[in-house]
Amino acid sequence: MSEPSLAIRKFSDLANPTRFLALVALLWPWMAGLTLCLFAFGLYLSFATLGDYQQGETVRIMYIHVPAAWLSMMCYSVMAVSALGTLVWRHPLADVSAKAAAPLGACFTLIALITGSLWGKPMWGTWWVWDARLTSVFVLFLMYLGLIALNRAMADDPTRAAKVGAVLILVGFVNIPIIKFSVEWWNTLHQPASVVRLDGPTIDPEFLRPLMVMAVAFTLFFFTLHVLAMRNEILRRRISVLRRHAARAVGREGSDA
């Protein structure tokens, strides 16, 4: 009997965890290398460019704050697509993807909150205000923590945890447009969008350049960590299946004796 090929020819082949692991083993060193190069270039630009005439040196905080804030929303969007994958297509890797992304999203949101606060103190004169943007991002952080807690609490029933988690992720997705448009819908201390706008970016290219390089670096960093965390989750599930089979085999031997 010939062995089935592990080559990936079409997107649906990725549904096979063994093929996915083979692809991750091939890709991750390149992804990590490229991430490091982009961070080196981005950090160089972040400190080589001029300070702002009003913000001074604190404009450099933007080069990590803005990408982290984008990532916090993109990570949740990845989880929402994964949740659809679990509920609609029953894709075997969809739940693995959502579960692996939650801690990453929580960490990027935490970076956005901390760096925002560290920018707010010298520029606004306060560490924190309960305006719509800051509050909705804080709610996003709590949602990530809730989803992580749910996965841990239901670790003994992963199939049910996947379904409950997917429904919660989709319900929570309502917060993403609220975060994005909060600065337009309400009067907030946080400034309105200055990069992703219909009429184009309103910030100077001097600041836009390091911002974009850092945004690409952060995004690639996220995807590198995401595929590696997915690999860990697949291994974790294999181990628990093996343990269950072994326990069943021992039980059978015990009853035969």
């Binding site: 001074g56 040196e57 604190t58 905080i61 901390i114 760096t115 010298p122 965390a229 860990n232 291994l235």
Partner: peptide
Amino acid sequence: HAFYVTLSYLSAFGIALGLVLWVWLDHRGR
């Protein structure tokens, strides 16, 4: 301002390093 900038970069680096360590140690353990 340098204090706030340094603290921002250090905290972001610390959290990113934590993520890398978590992924690496988790893989080694599995």
